Amino acid sequence: MDKGKQNYSDIARSELFVKLMAKKKRFILPITVFFLAFYFTLPILTSYFEVLNKPAIGSISWAWVFAFAQFIMTWVLCSLYSRKSVEFDKICDQIKSEVHQDGKAADL
């Protein structure tokens, strides 16, 4: 390895990288927990309880309404992540420009 280049460990310890990982964790962890809870609620409720078997609209049961809501939930979470990823990308660009400015790495 060249003397003037940073390796991944150096970059991972930088203030901006730590900030990026913390922001991503604060966003992704709650969204993932919500997604998994919402996703697994349908099979659990339909397997062990009768609440979703009751009619919601005509002959359509609450299970079908909940299942359709999972599609909407997925689209909403994807849209939220797409918007939030712009902020993550800006921090990534800052990290890359900081490394290039220092002249310590040529290929990031």
Rank of each mutant, 00 (worst) to 15 (best):
D10V: 00
K104M: 06
L16V: 07
I31G: 04
N53W: 13
A69W: 00
L45T: 14
I72E: 07
I72N: 00
F49D: 01
I72S: 02
N53I: 03
V51D: 00
F35M: 09
V33I: 15
A22C: 02
D107K: 02
L20D: 11
V76S: 02
V99Y: 01
A63W: 02
K96V: 06
K23I: 11
T74P: 00
A106Y: 11
K96L: 12
F34E: 05
L108C: 09
R26M: 12
K19W: 06
T46L: 00
F17E: 09
Q94I: 08
E87N: 03
D107F: 07
I95E: 10
T32R: 10
W64I: 11
E98H: 07
P30H: 08
P30L: 03
A22H: 11
S82D: 14
E87D: 13
L80E: 14
R83F: 15
H100V: 08
K84S: 08
F71R: 02
V65A: 11
F66A: 06
V76A: 06
S79F: 15
K3W: 12
W64S: 14
K19G: 04
Y8F: 12
W62Q: 02
E50G: 08
S61G: 10
P55F: 13
Q70V: 01
L36Q: 03
E15W: 03
A69P: 03
K84Q: 10
K54I: 12
T46F: 00
L52F: 10
W64Q: 12
T41H: 00
R13N: 07
K24S: 01
A63Q: 07
F40E: 10
K96R: 13
I28Q: 13
A105I: 09
Q6P: 04
S97N: 15
S59Y: 06
V18Y: 00
W64E: 15
P43N: 03
K90S: 14
T46I: 11
A106T: 14
G4L: 11
